[in-house]
Amino acid sequence: MATFIIRRIIWTIPVILLVIFMTFVMMKQIGGNPFRKTERNVPPAIQANLERKFNLDKPWYQQYVYYVKDVATFDLGPSMSQRTRTVNDIIKDGFPKSLKLGLLAFLWAVILGIPLGVLAALKPNSIFDYFAMFFSTIGFALPSFFVATLLIYYVALKWGLVPTNGWPQGFLEFDDRVILPSFALGLFPMAYFARLVRGSMLETMQQDYVRTARAKGLTYRRVVGLHVLRNSLIPAVTATAPLLGLIITGTFIIEIIFSIPGIGRYFINSVFNRDFSVVMGITVLTSLIIIIANLFVDIMYGILDPRTRDVR
């Protein structure tokens, strides 16, 4: 087990380097030299100094090494459009808000999606099952910006139950403003979980060991609680990693709609302002999160299902 985990951790290092490299190459493709395209006429000497300060006079592979070093020491450089702030400041400001949004959305998905799937699988083809599957089909198809605006229009504007936008400042502050954004973002993972858990429950119930457990005289409750549930939740753990990517994509949209000052909104604004150090910093950060989540899920999967350890 230890070897598996260590091997898996070591393997993420080249992945991280490759992802940073790809982001780096892409930014080189768009960015060009930020000090060459200003309206002001910068004297050549100052320009050269600026370039030297930011290592832009070095060949690209050295710049890449510098950038990797910077990322490793959590220094993502200055922002190009907001001169007084660094990318670190922006991330420090926006990331906790996005993280909270993502975690709350995930919480919705877990506390509503999984029970929905379990209950639907316990009574297949019942009214409840049809309702749950209808709900998850809808959750699958509706674009998140539609869900979000629909919720704002009805819940916030028409019925006046919650505010339409805004976000509490602190990471641990919660008020009624968090409900709609997190639900709108959580609907897709919720639908996904419900569907996945239902399918895997139904499959697990067909297994021989479940029949054996029943034949031994265990109660239905105990069989479902002990054997079926535990085994059928494994796919849900595996699905967490790809879902995380979707949640990150979703935060970008949801933050725009609900005016939440998270990193997604900073990212989009930075694209409009052509502030590429912020764009790059946020891309690298989200990549790191996805890679680390993948690592975590793989290790969890290895613990939950020992058969998968040998494959890698």
Partner: peptide, 25 residues
């Protein structure tokens, strides 16, 4: 396949946005 695994680490939306920016400066 390992290369593909690494690509899975790239977030979808930022990746797509950066590509549109490269292709249409």
């Amino acid at each position: 396949m390992r290369f593909l695994d690494a690509l899975y680490g790239l977030p979808y939306l930022p990746f797509a946005i950066i590509t549109t920016q490269i292709l249409s400066p």
